[in-house]
Amino acid sequence: MPSAIELDRRAYRRKQSVRSALLSCVSLIVFAAAVWLALARSEGWTRVRETFFSPRYFIESLPVVLQGLMTNLRVLASAVAGVAVLATLIALTRTTISPVLFPLRALATVYTDVFRGMPMIIVLYLIGFGIPGLRIFGRIDSTLLGTIAVILVYSAYVAEVIRAGIEAVHPSQRAAARSLGLSHSQTMRIIVLPQAVRKMVPALMNDFVAMQKDVGLVSVLGAIDAVRSAQIMVAKSYNFTPYVASGLLFILMSLPFIHLTDWYAARLKRREQAGGAV
């Protein structure tokens, strides 16, 4: 049984937290009411509500948009696989030191600079209209072209994350592995990469969340995805509700992973506070 002093302190803290919870509820309600009033009193509100939040168009568009979202999911899955391979190759190239590999290293550096700097939409246009323009491969599916563009851009980001992870492994670890007689590639595979991956996970998860919504951009090449399906319906009805529906679906798709990321970051923080490895 805690002492009277402690009980008093606890009672006080409880009262305080109830007070602040009440306060934030009240302010939330006031704020929401203010926004609602401002909207409702504005001249065009009824029209906006009808064109963006129409229940009829929402229900009508949902299955079509959902169908389109399957394309986005397919793009996402292939892009994740592509990025995993390409980004690892680029990162490994950038961490080599052999002078013979200088040209490759320079190429990898230019690659990451270019694709991290260029707006995604430009890359999409260049790939989406440039490659077919070469007329080497015949007709190429626009979904495939979009996937390639996403892979190119995200590989540049992810390669940098991987490289930072590799460099965060203490140099003595590499020296210790080489001293045991392990070859360069064994050292990378058995010692450096497994440790680097742990350090990279939070950053990689963030890039994945960003990628989840950027796969919606393949629509600019004409791939029939969630965004494009919505666009087609909007063009017919002049009602924008399908856009809202597709936006909502993208949010729903990313929510589980966003929360997984938060959970993982919190767990990592707890671990580190509990005292990490030497």
Binding site: S172, A176, S179, I191, Q195, V278
Partner: peptide, 11 residues
């Protein structure tokens, strides 16, 4: 060889 620290592989 054994160094001052970071010898063992933590994983």
């Amino acid at each position: 060889i054994v160094f001052q620290s970071f010898n063992l592989f933590p994983h």
